[in-house]
Simulated assay, not measured.
Amino acid sequence: MLSIGDFARAGRVSVRMLRHYDAIGLLTPARVDASTGYRSYTAGQLALLNRIVALKELGLTLAQVQQVVESAVTVDENPRDAHASPSRTRNPNPGRHRATGACTGAPTHHRK
Rank of each mutant, 00 (worst) to 15 (best):
A30P: 00
P86D: 10
G44C: 03
A8F: 07
Q64G: 13
V53Q: 07
R9G: 04
Q45L: 02
P94C: 13
T100S: 13
P94A: 09
H83R: 07
D76N: 10
V68Y: 07
H97S: 11
M1G: 07
L46K: 07
V75T: 12
P29H: 07
G25S: 07
V75M: 11
V65M: 01
I24P: 12
L58Y: 11
G105C: 04
L58D: 12
N91Y: 03
G5V: 08
L18C: 05
G25H: 14
G37Y: 00
T108N: 14
Y38Q: 04
A54H: 07
T42H: 14
A10T: 02
D6M: 10
A84I: 05
S35Q: 11
Y38H: 07
D33P: 01
E57R: 12
A47S: 10
M1L: 12
T28V: 15
Q45I: 03
H110F: 15
R98Q: 11
G95F: 05
L27G: 02
D22R: 01
D76K: 10
R80Q: 14
E70S: 15
A10K: 04
A72Q: 15
M1F: 11
A34Y: 06
P94I: 15
S85M: 06
H109D: 15
S87A: 10
D81W: 09
V53L: 11
V75F: 03
V65D: 01
T42F: 09
T28F: 05
Q64L: 04
V69Y: 03
V53T: 09
P86H: 02
Q67C: 07
P107V: 12
P79C: 06
A8P: 01
I4R: 00
V13Q: 09
D76I: 01
L2A: 01
T89E: 14
S40M: 09
S87N: 07
V68D: 01
R111S: 07
G105V: 06
P79Y: 05
A84E: 15
S40D: 13
L18P: 02
L62D: 05
